[in-house]
Design a protein around this nucleic acid. Structure first.
Length: 256
DNA sequence: ATGGCAGTGCCTCACTGA
């Protein structure tokens, strides 16, 4: 079973890319972030994905945020948002697929260390940690996938001199990432790949993709029980080369 | 040193993203 994550930066614009990518890869489960669509688009999207053999659920809002799960298999026990956390921003959707708990999240960006959004990010991360801790008690096979907006280590940025200490790379954000790991999760990409310059996002500006100036901020963290089933985790750069691409590209986990 | 691109909607600018 293949499980992937992709921040599409508007599903309205990227729908053809997503449909083509699913048909080309045959990926079983795909978590999307940054749909930028309110829930009025639901019927159209359900029909679009049903036509190529996928179930589709999402948790959206107008203009900003929004997350979705797309799956060949039934999506069971669906939960929207972080339960008991009063957050108007639509950033989380969860479902069980073939016994695997899949939690798709669009983490807060934070803007800068002096922004109110950064304080919101840290508060949101603390809420997420509690949620994942509870979920792990019920679901030993769990994947937390999405746009984390955190580069876990200096090697996950193209230039540490620019990024270290700033938003996406600050100590409190990395501590929050490590807290998730400490719950019993593993960065599945790093489980298989120790290479430098492995990125999932490239700025639209400055020809950053062509110049290989990116960040690794999209991740699939998997529970220890899932490590035993994990066979590969790879970044697929192909969609970033298309016309009008998302600035993020998919990451794909393969389970046996 | 600065800003550079892209998407959305309050749409000819502002806001957000990372």
């Amino acid at each position: 079973m293949q499980i992937a994550t992709w921040n599409v930066n508007s599903l309205k614009v990227r729908l053809p890319h997503v449909l083509d990518w699913l048909q080309q890869t045959g990926c079983d489960v795909l978590g999307l972030q940054e749909l930028k669509l309110d829930n009025a688009a639901n019927d159209k999207l359900v029909a679009e994905f049903a036509a190529i053999g996928y179930n589709f659920i999402y948790n959206g809002q107008k203009t900003y945020n929004g997350v979705a799960l797309i799956s060949k298999f039934p999506l069971e026990n669906v939960v929207l948002d972080i339960p008991e956390y009063d957050d108007v921003q639509k950033r989380v959707i969860a479902a069980t697929v073939n016994g695997v708990r899949v939690i798709c999240a669009y983490f807060v960006n934070g803007e800068s260390l002096i922004s109110d959004k950064y304080q919101y990010k840290l508060a949101w991360l603390a809420q997420l940690e509690g949620y994942i801790q509870r979920e792990l008690q019920h679901y030993p096979e769990l994947v937390l996938l999405g746009d984390y907006n955190i580069a876990p280590e200096p090697r996950d940025t193209y230039d540490a001199a620019i990024w270290e200490g700033g938003v996406l790379c600050s100590e409190p954000e990395r501590a929050a990432f490590n807290n998730l790991v400490a719950l019993g999760l593993t960065d599945s990409f790093r489980h298989f790949n120790q290479e430098d310059r492995q990125y999932t996002w490239w700025d639209y500006r400055n020809m950053a993709f062509r110049r290989k100036q990116g960040l690794r901020i999209d991740h699939l963290l998997i529970s220890h029980q899932l490590i035993e089933r994990a066979q590969a985790c790879v970044i697929d750069p192909a969609p970033r080369k298309l016309e009008r691409p998302s600035d993020h590209t998919p990451v794909i986990l393969t389970l046996k």
